[in-house]
Simulated scan of single mutants.
Amino acid sequence: MPGVALLLSAFGWVLLALAMIGTAYMAFATGVLARFLAQRSPASPRATPVTLLKPLYGAEPKLAENLATFLEQDHKGPVQVLFGVQRADDPAIAAVHALQRRYPEARIDLVIDGTPHGSNGKVGNLVNMMRQAAHGVLILSDSDMAVGREYIGQVLAALDQPGTGAVTCLYRGRGDAGFWSRLASAGPSYQFLVGLVFAKTRGLADPCMGSTIALRRETLDAIGGFAAFADVLADDHAIGQAVRARGLAIAIPPLLLVHASTETAFVELWKHELRWAATVRGVSPAGYAGSFIGIPLPIALAGMAIHPNYGLAITLAALAVRVATVRVVDRHAGEPTAPLWMLPLRDIASFAVFVASFFVRSVDWRGTELTMLDNGRVAAPSEMT
């Protein structure tokens, strides 16, 4: 039918136009990322006492190795590494005991406390851990992060800047469990990182991420402590909002940490990324809705199916920009996150997650289904009855 053909043709041109805009955006954003990462990140010379907070849950591939990077630091001041679990039979305890044997001179403390504090299990763990936090500067980071030797010094240097209330850190991916984990790790390395730095440097976003949240104890107390975020899914974002509400800035040093992906099957990747996407959608609906423009390759492929000739040229341009992004990230990381042939699969998966996230009303968090409420809050099944 002529009318249907005309509509299909128009739809194809719209897709190709969006793909061209997205490709131009990603090219510019990749340049911004390259300049940001090229900055020098000095370490603080001060011997500031620090407590590293590491909430744990279950065994993960390379867990002990990742945690050990926080003990192998060049920082000269006292460091307490405080681990927390909520069950006496948590397999992560074995990794903590192994670290205590490996680093007998380090102060490594473990809190085992299952006292509940709201729906967010990680935050509840942190509330229990704070009873044994020894120092006035706190650096919280997720269990799946790995860092370099100057991590503490660089974070403290950023925290020492006037008007700074908290420090958070960029991260790239690393697959630790085969194909699906490598596919998952390409997301933070080659897409999330680009958009985040662009938004931060252009004043479009002021992120605070679980990769690192460093702040002084008095700042944490002033925003209500960790307990104030016990029912919030995006606790890192909410902590950042609370810090900014007190007129303090959140700094991001040009430091690239490592996030270890551990997915061994597609369903794990899907659940994890859908939870993350739904979380971002909940805290920034408008910004998230427009983020599809940063995934131009699948859009170009769809447009090429309707207009092959023009579509092929735009698809190749989108692919070339994606390769340039990979080169920038891998150069600063010192190693590739994933092979180039994974890029189309990664971008198609990202677009599928983006679409599916608009239909999510509950998310899976470590085997527990949490219902999403207003203002980024969540409720466990027992709280819904």
Rank of each mutant, 00 (worst) to 15 (best):
F229C: 04
V32Q: 13
T385M: 09
S44I: 05
G240L: 06
L316I: 00
P2K: 14
F358K: 05
E72I: 07
P254M: 09
L345N: 03
S284F: 00
R149F: 10
T264D: 05
P254C: 11
I108W: 05
L256K: 09
A318L: 07
S143A: 15
D231H: 11
I250K: 11
L140D: 12
A333L: 12
A177M: 12
A300G: 04
G163F: 15
I108T: 04
C208E: 05
S382G: 05
P339N: 01
D236A: 08
G114R: 15
T262P: 00
G210W: 02
I250A: 08
G247E: 04
L37N: 07
R216F: 01
L67T: 02
G225N: 12
F292W: 06
T201A: 07
L340S: 00
L248F: 03
G287Y: 02
D90H: 13
H259A: 03
V32D: 09
G175I: 08
H307L: 10
A68H: 03
E72F: 04
A158D: 10
L8R: 12
R281C: 04
A158H: 14
G376P: 13
A94V: 11
G3Q: 13
S185N: 06
A106N: 01
H117T: 02
F351A: 14
V123Q: 07
V360E: 13
Y57S: 03
A43M: 02
L301P: 00
T48I: 12
A222Y: 07
A228L: 02
V14T: 07
I299H: 00
L16C: 01
L6K: 14
P104H: 04
P2Q: 12
R281W: 03
S382K: 11
L312D: 12
L370R: 04
T51G: 14
D160M: 05
A64Q: 12
M145F: 12
P253G: 11
R366P: 01
F226Q: 02
V147D: 06
G124M: 01
L370D: 04
M384E: 07
A242P: 06
Y151A: 08
A238L: 05
F70R: 08
G187Q: 06
A19D: 12
M304H: 03
L16P: 01
G114S: 13
E268M: 07
I306W: 04
P381V: 01
